[in-house]
Design a protein around this nucleic acid. Structure first.
Ligand SMILES: [Zn+2]
Ligand SMILES: [Zn+2]
Ligand SMILES: [Zn+2]
Ligand SMILES: [Zn+2]
Lengths: 131, 131
DNA sequence: CTTGACCCTATAGTCGATAGAGGGTGCAGC
DNA sequence: GCTGCACCCTCTATCGACTATAGGGTCAAG
């Protein structure tokens, strides 16, 4: 593999073509050189970087967090404390979201269990939503 | 209480003023009559409806789901099966989100635990993100 | 009569993409 | 050479659920 078209890069990273162009536009993925016909031509470094981005996204990091992780990962001599910190902060984000959703689920189960059938006018669900 | 200004309605429902205007714009809350000075004047029915909307939102229903719930709740003679169905479908939504986030959290914990300190170049976190 | 809190409209921005219009490029088969 | 087709290009708009800002108008207290 010497160079990849945007479609090939998309296939190799399970990303949509438009998403790759979007990452370029917001400065997350550097603009690659172009062919004679103005096609983007990607190299291994782009592939690596995009894989990194997609892996982070799959872990729920925001694009801003990904940007920071990318910057940090380039400073190889630096102490990795900041990386550590970013990951644990994000873990806290995720855990808080889970806790919030658990509360919703419990409340929804409670409301749902209260339905005794009949008409909407009698339904306890609607009642529970209209306090 | 006879009529409420938008600010009073906002305070009574823990909603932002702009959000109320937004709900009106998308047709979720009916446009109220106006005062001589072109101020919105809300009545009890608006308060009830907005409370219903906010309660649904707090339970994580989308505005489209809320719209359906509002429509259903108006048909008091109808069988409440659809309401039941909507609520359980949403509970499934929430449970799926929780399951997804649990997976992320587990993976993040795993990655985080792998860090042995040192430089970014040696960090197992960065390694884990660069497969 | 002025101050300040409140209200009005209209427009643009957030995040992370996704969709579509309207066109250009490159390659295989005929 | 020519046609068809997959792929690529840019630009703009859209999604959900708001939020923010600009540039005004209204109203009651002091
Ligand atoms: Zn995060
Ligand atoms: Zn019921
Ligand atoms: Zn739902
Ligand atoms: Zn580390």
């Amino acid at each position: 593999m010497k160079e990849l078209s945007i479609g090939a890069l998309a296939a190799a990273t399970d990303t949509k073509v438009v998403t790759i162009r979007y990452y370029e536009k917001i400065g997350l993925l550097p603009a690659p050189p172009r062919s004679a016909g103005n096609y983007r031509l990607y190299r291994q470094s782009h592939l690596d970087r995009l894989r990194f981005i997609r892996r982070c996204r799959a872990l729920g990091f925001t694009l801003e967090e990904v940007r920071e992780l990318l910057e940090l990962s380039a400073e190889t001599e630096r102490d990795c404390g900041k990386v550590d910190q970013l990951v644990s902060a994000h873990l806290v984000d995720v855990q808080r979201k889970i806790a919030d959703l658990e509360k919703l689920a419990a409340e929804l189960r409670r409301i749902h269990a209260s339905c005794r059938g009949g008409t909407v006018g009698e339904c306890r669900i609607i009642e529970a939503l209209s306090p």
